[in-house]
Design a protein around this nucleic acid. Sequence first.
DNA 1: TATAATAGTTAGTATTGCCTAACAAAGTAA
DNA 2: TTACTTTGTTAGGCAATACTAACTATTATA
Lengths: 225, 225
Amino acid sequence: MISLTEENYLKALIYLSSLAPGIEEKKDVGTSELASYLKLKSSTVNEMLKRLKEKNLINHEKYKKITLTHSGERNGLKIIRKHRLWETFLFTKLDFDWIEIHEVAEQLEHIKSEKLVEKIDRLLGYPNFDPHGDPIPDKHGKIPQRITKSLSAVNKGEKCIVLAVSDTSKDFLNYLEDLDISIKTEIFVIDKIAFDQSIKIKIRQEQFSLSRKVADNLLVGDKFN
Amino acid sequence: MISLTEENYLKALIYLSSLAPGIEEKKDVGTSELASYLKLKSSTVNEMLKRLKEKNLINHEKYKKITLTHSGERNGLKIIRKHRLWETFLFTKLDFDWIEIHEVAEQLEHIKSEKLVEKIDRLLGYPNFDPHGDPIPDKHGKIPQRITKSLSAVNKGEKCIVLAVSDTSKDFLNYLEDLDISIKTEIFVIDKIAFDQSIKIKIRQEQFSLSRKVADNLLVGDKFN
DNA sequence: TATAATAGTTAGTATTGCCTAACAAAGTAA
DNA sequence: TTACTTTGTTAGGCAATACTAACTATTATA
């Protein structure tokens, strides 16, 4: 059994080694780095590292860097999955604010029940991204690719489907609602105006134009999932 | 701050002093009784009692019985409220089985977020009873009276409102759904048939009859809270 | 390369929450 | 009322998780 505290260490290790902003490929993590991220003393972390190694969740040799074992990675991703699913639940089902969801999800992520996670996942319609746009690992630990193609990058005469937004502000989301644009909406690009980089589109037989800023913040793909 | 363990002690004290089956009025609780209920040793409980007294959650004099202070009672009821709301959520929103809900709610009840509790309460439509029929304390700690009057007890020519059911089987609930009877449904009793003790009723201008068994399991009142 | 700065480790301490063993108080029954 | 039983308390330990202080290894820099 992995304790709540241990779970947080694993989560932190995954974050620092591969999820933190600006990380391209996996990097090894040191004791102090982990300690400062968790706001703990190195000595405390050091002791925990022994326990995690004991449990086969990490690889660690004296004075060397820390890496996760396969089991450690799998278990850490489970917590991240739960965290992001709960955030999505709080945001979409309970109308929590964007800012409040993290703290509560931080608690909910430790609830132990496979069934609960799957039920929540289903209730939410198996989302690929949480309200922050972070990818939600599936039950096998597979992480969906972050969507990077924005509507601005779609060529004239092509169609695409809205997959996510990069701006999650209420203002933007409300504006999209007014336009009746949401996840899965199909957009056809009629024209791209060079002058102000605005874009002329067709949605469900209706035509209108979007500013460059709006187009930038709409993340799209060829098909849904 | 009350720890998870302390919360469980408070919950146990409320249970043993007033909620356990067969308790008419509040009764004081002893160390061993509490220990055996929590499956702990008396010495362990004894130590915890000191901490709870320190925190002003219980009254306890050496070798005497334990009683909850106002604060202890309020805090304990909060946990019970959360537990029962989560059970209701799991059962009605996530389709968990009657048997599975307790264990998961046992974990969820310790999540600290006033807002979360209120949101869940609202999502559920402010229920008065959980799927087991146990009353859910409101946010001020007020416990709804268990409803004891069944439709069978309503006189000919009187009307009443459905407040709860005493049978929570899928079969029964599905049957009620077919009849379009649910919480808050107004029922007018047209006639009571002595022969088979069935009952003739009117709901929203429609007339039909219910068997004695069904009427027994419909708990009613004059008005909805 | 010598030394200073940074990173990592060890030892000793505290708190929470649990245990066993030994003992003291209260309740019960001969 | 004495003796037995049940109940409650104290003392001493242990594991998990955190701390400070002191020490050692590694890395970076003058």
